[in-house]
Structure formats: structure tokens, C-alpha cells
């Protein structure tokens, strides 16, 4: 897997580089602003771009705008947005078109090396990795009082993890239950959200999450 990192803090850029190298992921370019990121992606066509939100020159939302631009110009490049703060609004803008191969995590999450590497791989594989904090915001701001209301607290929790992009196995591990129990919950969720069974499993999963996020 070939990764480009856009992060203006050298300390963090190199730290993430080391961390990815540890996980056998190749960092082919490290840049410190959005313009350089565009050039790097154009030249190297990486599998994944890890993008910081606040970058020079304005230290505002350059990373978000760059990510949206990348999505538009190079849809095949997976995006993992890292930020000191996660903001539901930025996430909504990113998710607006497509939740596939998209991640939005707090920078803090690099501290949990394995989870972070897992998220990186998941996003590169076309999955999603949304920060738990972000999911809380999305849920809190979701204005629809709708099929989701029928979910039991347990199912809601499972859906929450699904929204973060975790696999059933990972959810089972976190909740300390069997995979079978998780699968039962997932099936219930699909049923309650009225998602037909003949669809591709992954598509259904994304649809459930999208509905959940109310985007």
C-alpha cells in the first residue's frame, strides 16, 4: 500500500510515517500543505492520502477542501482525514458524495497503534473509519426521529460501531460477545431499517450507516 501524508507538523508527520512503516505500509511522500498534496497525488497516484485539516497558509479547513477536491479529481484515492478536532460539519461535507474509502479520525487515535493501522487498512480497502466522537456528534445532530428509534440500545451500539467502520468480529471483540450475537443484532438492524436482504452485504452495511448518520 502506498500512502501520501499531508501534515504540517514535522514531528507528527514523521511519527505517523514510522507508525505506518511499522505496519508495513509504505509512505511515498510527506508534504506540509494542500498545494503540495495535490502535486504529490498527481505525480504518485497513491492508494491512500492521509490529510490534516488545518494546514498552512491559513490554518483553517484547507485539509477538508483538499480532500473534497481529491475525491472529485481522483476518486480511486482513499482518504483518511486526521484532525485535532473532529467536526460533524466537515464530515458531512466529506460524506456528502460517498462514504466509501473514507476515514475521519482524531489525531489522538494514532496513540492506539493497532487500531489506527486497522483503520488505515480499512479505509484503503474501501471501507470507512469514522471517529467515535464524530459519530456521537452525527447522532446528536440527526434530526430524524424515524426507523432508528425502533432500535434497542444494544442494536444502536452495534450500529454505532458499524458506523465507525468496524467489522462484526471487531465489534464482537469490543462488546465481549460472540460474533453470532453481533450478526443477529446486525440482521435486526437491517430489518428494522428496512434494508432488503438480497443486496450485497457491504452495500447494506453502508446504507445502514448512512441512514444512521442522517446525512
Amino acid at each position: 500500500m502506498r500512502v501520501v501524508i499531508a501534515e504540517d507538523s514535522v514531528l507528527l508527520r514523521e511519527g505517523i510515517g514510522r507508525l505506518l512503516a511499522e505496519g508495513g505500509i509504505e509512505v511515498i511522500a510527506g508534504v506540509s500543505d494542500a498545494d503540495a498534496l495535490m502535486i504529490a497525488i498527481e505525480e504518485t497516484q497513491p492508494d491512500l492520502a492521509i490529510v490534516d485539516v488545518r494546514m498552512p497558509p491559513g490554518y483553517r479547513d484547507e485539509g477538508v477542501r483538499a480532500a473534497i477536491e481529491i475525491r472529485r479529481r481522483w476518486p480511486s484515492v482513499a482518504l483518511l482525514v486526521l484532525s485535532q478536532f473532529v467536526e460533524e460539519r466537515y464530515a458531512s461535507e466529506l460524506i456528502a458524495s460517498d462514504t466509501q474509502a473514507l476515514g475521519y479520525l482524531l489525531k489522538d487515535r494514532v496513540a492506539d497503534v493497532d487500531e489506527f493501522l486497522d483503520a488505515v487498512r480499512r479505509v484503503a480497502d474501501g471501507g470507512t473509519a469514522l471517529d467515535a466522537e464524530l459519530v456521537r456528534q452525527l447522532v446528536a445532530r440527526s434530526r430524524r426521529a424515524d426507523p432508528l428509534a425502533q432500535l434497542t440500545p444494544k442494536e444502536r451500539e452495534v450500529l454505532d460501531y458499524m458506523a465507525q467502520g468496524r467489522s462484526n468480529a471487531a465489534i464482537a471483540e469490543t462488546l465481549v460477545v460472540t460474533i453470532g450475537a453481533v450478526e443477529k443484532h446486525v440482521a435486526n438492524i437491517f430489518m428494522k431499517l428496512d434494508l432488503p436482504a438480497d443486496d450485497d452485504q457491504r452495500h447494506r452495511r453502508v446504507a445502514a450507516v448512512v441512514q444512521y448518520l442522517g446525512s
Binding site: 488545518r54 490554518y59 483553517r60 479547513d61 485535532q84 478536532f85 473532529v86 467536526e87 460533524e88 460539519r89 466537515y90 482524531l106 489522538d108 466522537e133 464524530l134 456521537r136 456528534q137 452525527l138 447522532v139 446528536a140 445532530r141
Partner: peptide, 26 residues
């Protein structure tokens, strides 16, 4: 992070009040 956000949330400048309230709601 909470201390810094408590001083001034940058999303407030970029996207306005409604966006800034999301983190409070979360």
C-alpha cells in the same frame, strides 16, 4: 483538546454557529 476548543472552536470561524454547536451536542 477540550481546553483548546473551549478557548475558541476554529470551526466557528469556518462554518458558523450551527456547525460549532455539533461538538457541544455530541
Amino acid at each position: 483538546r477540550n481546553i483548546v476548543r473551549g478557548i475558541h472552536p476554529s470551526v466557528l470561524d469556518e462554518r458558523g454557529l450551527d456547525a460549532a454547536f455539533s461538538a457541544l451536542a455530541g
